[in-house]
Every structure is written in C-alpha cells, then in structure tokens.
Amino acid sequence: MLEHLGEKLILHVTLGNFSFSFDILTVIMSWVVIAVLVVVALILRRGLGQDIEEKPSRTQAILESLIDLLKGQLMSSFSSDKLARELFPFVSTVFMFVLVSNWLSVIPYCESPTKDLNVTLSLALLVFVMSQLLAVRMRGGIRYLKGFLEPYPFMLPLNIVSEIAKPISHSFRLFGNTFGGAILVTVVSAKFAPVLVPAALNAFYGLFVGAIQAFVFAILTVAYINVAVES
C-alpha cells in the first residue's frame, strides 16, 4: 500500500506519432464529480416550479437556500453588483466542483481529483486568466498596464511576481491540503491504526477541511478577480 505513496497512475497514449499522457484516475474521478453535479442540478431543476404563484416545493427551497448562501457568502465580496451577477455561475461552479471533489475522498475506492496538481493549477490559472481579462475589459488596456507601475515604476518586478504568485499559492493551497490529508490517512491506516481511526481522519480531512478549502478556494477566486478589477 505504501510503495506507491505519493505516486500517481499515468496512462500513456500514442495515437500515430502523437503521444500524450494523463492521470487516468484523476480524469475518471473528475468525470464522476461532473456526473454527480449534473444529477444534482437535474434534481434541483425538476423541483423548480414554473408558476410563480405556486407554493415552493422542498427541492426548490433547497435550491433557493443554496443560491442565497452562495450569493450571501461569496458574491457579497464583489464590489460591483453587475460583476457579481455576471460571475455568479462561474464562482458557484468552481465552489461546487471543488466541494464535491473534496468530499469524494470519503467514498471508498474514490479519490479527490483535487489531489492532483493538474486539476487545481488548471482551475487557478483559469481564475488568473479570467481576472486579468476582466481587468483589461473593465479598466482598459493602457490603464491595466499602468497598474503594474503603481505605486512606483521600480516596483514593476514586484507587482509581476505578486500577480504570478497568486495562481501558484491558490492552486498549491488546495492541492497541499487535499494531498496532505490523503497522505496522512494512507500512512495512518497502513502503519498505525487500520480500523476506525482512518475513518474519523478521512471524515475530518474529506468533509470538514474539504468544505473549508472549497470555500476558501471560491472566496479567493472572488477576491483575486475583485482586486484585479478594482485596483
């Protein structure tokens, strides 16, 4: 069990003279996450009544409280309402994807896709590119480039480094937490206590830390976009 600790299963595929490799387990698990989210979305969608006058059903109440929670906790950090409305689906999808990914490690034979740096880095870079594009769109190209010379021109390298450090710390935080939790659970269950303790540890790292980190990831997404657009 421990001989493959910290390693991952990689599939090498060669199509003609084009070859590529990917982490097969991670990709399958992210498909599972997507399937779970789509099923949940379908269930919630079915509960959404068409008639406004109708009394809300149970699933609709769940959907509404979910949307209220996302809006109140995540979107309220946006300084502009328009941007918040526009980015609500994106941030919510990021949050739910990371949350379900983290929670997936609780199920046996499943592992979190966020255990893989590729997944977290792709999300973080997506957020980074998005924030820069939004900053250019909201402030204009020249003012955006001028922003790197603030407050003094010699701070330019520092500003660039701090911008680049954002996606790195963003992705490594999620990756480190999930991966560290998984390693800890594996080591404890293989070396110290094979029963009961790993379950509790797994619940703690998978459910509690997973939820916190998903929230942190989403709120940092909001904060990075907001800072890039504002300053």
Partner: peptide, 23 residues
Amino acid sequence: MHLEWGKVVTSLNWTFVFNLVNF
C-alpha cells in the same frame, strides 16, 4: 498505450487540459 506509476507527484501533463475542458 500503457499504464505506469508516475514518480513525480507534482508533474504536469495532459490532465491539465482535460480538466479545463471538463470544467
């Protein structure tokens, strides 16, 4: 097409692109 254990835990590969598409 073959499977193997990758030594490098922080290695970047096509999973990155796949995940972007998935997302």
